[in-house]
C-alpha cells in the first residue's frame, strides 16, 4: 500500500541553514495494516506523512501510495487516500453536515449520495444531533470526530491520521478510538497513524515504526520492540537492610538476567520473563535467608524501547518544542 525508498525532505530556513527533517526513510506498509509512526516532536514523522499525502514535495527519494507515485501523480494519490490532519479540517464558519456533503461531492458523489453518506457518517460517529450546528460551536472531541468523518467520506482504502487525539481528554480519546476501530473493521482500511501518545501506539497499532532525527530507528510490533529492545524488569526490595548485594547475586545467576543494579535496598534487573522470574527469585531469596519485602514484575513500555534505542525518554522529548520547521512554516 505504501513504499518509500530513501525519502528525504530538507527545509531551507535561511541562506546558511538547511534543516534535514527526513533523512532517507525506507518504509513498506502492507494493505490492512495499522501502523503507528512514533517519535518526539521534530523527529520527522509528520513531515513524512505530509510527503505521503502530497502536502509537501520530497527533496529526494521515492514514495508510492496505493501504487501511485506521490511526485509524478499527486492528484491520483489524493483520490485514493483519506487524511485527518493535526488541525480541524472542517471550516469553522460551516455547518457540520454541509462540510461532509461537500467533501463527498469533491470525491465525485452526486448531491443525493453525498447527503446519504453524510447521514451514515454522522450516525456512525454520534454526530447526528449536531449536523446543523456550526463547526465553531462544536467541542474539541466533536470536531475531531467530524474530522474523522471527513476523512472517511469516500471510504478510502488508506487513511492517514496525524496525531488525531492530540488535545483531547482521555474519555474523548478512548471514544474516538472506539469509533475509528469500528469503522476500520467495516471499511477494511490501512491506517497510518502518527502520535506521541505511547499508550495509543501500544494498544491500537499492529506495528510501530520509531522515527528519530528523520530516520527510522526501529520497526516491529509493539511487543516485538519491547521484547528485543527493552525486555521485562524485576524490581526487588530486600526485607533485611544490607542484604541487597546477596540478592543481586541471586538475580545475576538467573538465566537471561542482565543489567543488574543495586540502589540502597533495591535490586533492579532485566529478565526474559518477569512473570516467571518473580516467584523463582522470591523462593531463592527466602531459601538463602535474605527474604524480600516486595517483588515487582515490570513490563516494558514503548518509552523504555525509545530509551533503549536513543538513551532519551520519549515522554520528555514529546513535550519539548523543537526548532525544526513544519511545512507550514518552512520555506
Amino acid at each position: 500500500m505504501i513504499q518509500t525508498r530513501g525519502l528525504t525532505k530538507d527545509f531551507v530556513v535561511s541562506s546558511t541553514e538547511t534543516v534535514h527533517a527526513v533523512r532517507g526513510i525506507d518504509l513498506d506498509i502492507a494493505p490492512g495494516e495499522l501502523v503507528a509512526v512514533l517519535g518526539p516532536n521534530g523527529a520527522g514523522k509528520s513531515t513524512t506523512m505530509r510527503m505521503l499525502t502530497t502536502l509537501v514535495r520530497p527533496t529526494s527519494g521515492t514514495a508510492t501510495v496505493a501504487g501511485v507515485d506521490v511526485v509524478a501523480d499527486p492528484a491520483t494519490v489524493r483520490r485514493h487516500i483519506g487524511y485527518v490532519g493535526q488541525g480541524n479540517g472542517a471550516g469553522h464558519q460551516q455547518r457540520a453536515a454541509d462540510e461532509l456533503t461537500m467533501q463527498g461531492q469533491v470525491y465525485g458523489l452526486d448531491r443525493i449520495s453525498a447527503r446519504r453518506r453524510t447521514g451514515e457518517l454522522l450516525d456512525a460517529l454520534d454526530l447526528t444531533a449536531l449536523a446543523r450546528r456550526k463547526v465553531s460551536d462544536l467541542s474539541g472531541g466533536q470536531r475531531r470526530r467530524l474530522d474523522v468523518a471527513l476523512g472517511l467520506v469516500h471510504a478510502p482504502r488508506l487513511l492517514f491520521l496525524d496525531e488525531p487525539t492530540t488535545g483531547l481528554d482521555p474519555h474523548n480519546r478512548a471514544n474516538l478510538w472506539e469509533h475509528i476501530a469500528r469503522l476500520r473493521a467495516e471499511h477494511d482500511m490501512t491506517i497510518v497513524l502518527t502520535t506521541h501518545y505511547l499508550d495509543e501506539a501500544d494498544t491500537m497499532a499492529e506495528r510501530v515504526v520509531v522515527v528519530d532525527h528523520g530516520q527510522v530507528i526501529a520497526d516491529d510490533t509493539a511487543d516485538g520492540l519491547k521484547r528485543t529492545l527493552a525486555g521485562d524488569r524485576v524490581v526487588l526490595t530486600v526485607a533485611v537492610p544490607g542484604t541487597a548485594g546477596q540478592v543481586a547475586s541471586i538475580v545475576g545467576s538467573l538465566r537471561g538476567a542482565r543489567d543488574v543494579t543495586v540502589t540502597g535496598d533495591r535490586v533492579d534487573a532485566r529478565v526474559a520473563d518477569a512473570g516467571a522470574a518473580v516467584p523463582e527469585l522470591v523462593l531463592a531469596a527466602s531459601a538463602t535467608g535474605t527474604p524480600l519485602l516486595e517483588a515487582l514484575a515490570v513490563r516494558p513500555t514503548l518509552d523504555d524501547v525509545f530509551l533503549a534505542l536513543t538513551g532519551r525518554r520519549l515522554r520528555d522529548e514529546g513535550s519539548r518544542v523543537t526548532d525544526i520547521p513544519t511545512e507550514e512554516t518552512a520555506a
Binding site: 490532519g85 472542517a90 471550516g91 474530522d147
Partner: peptide, 18 residues
C-alpha cells in the same frame, strides 16, 4: 488565513480538488 490556522485549508489541499 484563518482556515490555514485551523487546518481546513490543509484538508482541502489533500482532496482531489485541483
Amino acid at each position: 488565513q484563518f482556515e490555514m490556522q485551523t487546518g481546513a485549508h490543509e484538508r482541502l489541499l489533500v482532496t482531489p480538488l485541483s
